[in-house]
Design a protein around this nucleic acid. Structure first.
Length: 421
RNA sequence: GGAGAACUGGCCGAGUGGCUGAAGGCGGCACCCUGCUAAGGUGUUAGGUGGAGUAAUCUGCCUCGAGAGUUCGAAUCUCUCGUUCUCCGCCA
């Protein structure tokens, strides 16, 4: 959620930044309501102040044993007026909040400007793309052939885009998860978190999934609970409505969870294989930082995610997303894309975003500034490190041999217990 | 699911209708004292949202789990909901 004070003070700047995302975005409507809201509040405040003072007088008069009927009646009338104003206040307040909740974050100044993914900027490319003479099979064929993933029976017990890892496939998926977690906790200094995968609407609102993206999530019928679309939601909200000490920042956390997405708008896209499933495994990285730490910590976080691919020896590249391609809550975002032979292209495998205080304002994540004693909103950022299923797909596609076997990357051997499939 | 108890500032904890945005303690911060990474003293320290001012700062209002109600006036009384603890029941 954008800071209303900032919006009020720099309306032109905010509008300009928002329009870099989408020319239709504007905060004008919010500002209109803001003016009225403040006016109403001032009126109500004055009346409340009056009531308070008068009520206090009644107390004193009663102590002196005087009759207070007349004053009481006057104050009662004031109370009625206050009630009317308070209703208006609440209404305007809600309206303003609703509008703000549906406005995306402003992209940072340096984000590449553009109106489609064409404008994304490649920042670096790592590893060589080897196109073997024999021609690699796409992972959806290879995984079925080797009985690593059972797509058809997954659909039978659930629905389309749900699948079953089995045998060495399940072992490989588990190995990747463990490898990621071990690397991030032991080498990169993250705390491992194993959070609930069902969370309430407050948490979903805190990280920006609600109210705008309600139709993309699975929701419990009888309770205020949603299946998480990413571990970002429970992990970022761990400190919901808390005030942290500056000394405790940055908070670096990593979590493996299954993730659940309805993929409402993507019918027909990536229907084959593991790329776009309704349920998938992901190891997430989340950091809560001060604004000063944010840039450096984001670079580190992105490198931490990239490190996993380097160790797996998968070719990948980092791109910086342009203003139109960034997620709702992000102000800056790097995507890491891994080489996928079946697409003959790089495919997104991790998104490392900085949210500024956009999420923290929604989630009430604050810290106490050591020098001034004042509280401040944290900055939040996250990145998947990485989508496990996509990593799985990349491994079996990139490392298949002419003889039909798949060579497992060395770093995984101690987790899988086998070196080839 | 049923019964009882509880929910107050960063934390602990007083507070049963006006003098309480809230005693006291801990923790934090500042300064002082002290010859050794100890102990002590003094002061300071909630959040939100408005208004005035270039600013330092001054000032109104709201907030004692959430919401509704009673009242001239609610942390304090009533109701609903949530959460926690204890006991009972149920349990793939």
């Amino acid at each position: 959620m954008l800071d209303i004070k900032l919006v009020r003070e720099n309306p032109d700047k905010i509008n300009e930044l928002l329009k870099r995302r989408n020319p239709e975005l504007s905060i004008d409507k919010v500002l209109e309501i803001d003016v009225e809201r403040r006016k109403t509040q001032t009126e109500a405040d004055e009346l409340r102040s009056l009531r308070k003072n008068e009520s206090q007088k009644i107390g004193e008069l009663k102590k002196q044993g005087q009759n207070t009927d007349k004053v009481q009646e006057e104050v009662r009338v004031i109370g009625e007026k206050i009630k009317v104003l308070e209703e208006k206040e609440t209404e305007l307040d809600t309206k303003q909040r609703d509008l703000l909740l549906n406005i995306p974050n402003t992209p940072c100044e340096t984000a590449p400007i553009g109106n489609s993914e064409e404008a994304n900027v490649v920042k670096k490319t790592v590893g060589e793309i080897v196109k073997p003479a024999f021609g690699q099979k796409p992972h959806w064929d290879l995984a079925v052939e080797k009985n690593l993933v059972d797509f058809e029976r997954g659909v039978k017990i659930s629905q389309s885009r749900f699948s079953i890892y089995r045998g060495k496939g399940a072992a490989l998926e588990r190995a990747i998860i463990n490898f990621f977690l071990d690397l991030h906790t032991n080498e990169h200094g993250y705390e491992e978190i194993m959070p609930p995968v069902l969370v309430n609407s407050a948490a979903m609102t805190g990280t920006g999934q609600l109210p705008k993206f309600a139709e993309d999530m699975y929701k419990c019928v009888d309770e205020d609970l949603y299946l998480i679309p990413t571990a970002e939601v429970p992990v970022t909200n761990i400190y919901f409505d808390e005030i942290l000490n500056e000394d405790d920042l940055p908070k670096c956390m990593t979590a493996y969870t299954p993730c659940f997405r309805r993929e409402a708008g993507s019918a027909g896209k990536d229907t084959r294989g593991l790329i776009r499933q309704h349920q998938f495994n992901k190891v997430e990285l989340v950091k809560l930082t001060t604004p000063e730490q944010a840039e450096e910590e984001h670079e580190k976080l992105t490198r931490d995610a990239e490190k996993t691919l380097e160790l797996l020896e998968l070719p990948f590249r980092r791109i910086e997303l342009c203003t139109a391609d960034m997620g709702f809550s992000a102000q800056k975002c790097y995507d890491i894309e891994v080489w996928m032979p079946s697409y003959d292209a790089y495919k997104e495998i991790s998104s490392c975003s900085v949210f500024g205080d956009f999420q923290a304002r929604r989630a009430g994540l604050r810290y106490r500034n050591k020098a001034t004693g004042k509280t401040n909103y944290c900055w939040t950022m996250n990145g998947s490190g990485l989508a496990v299923g996509r990593t799985f797909a990349a491994i079996i596609e990139n490392f298949q041999q002419e003889d039909g076997t798949i060579v497992i990357p060395k770093v995984l051997h101690k987790y899988t217990g086998f070196e080839r499939i």
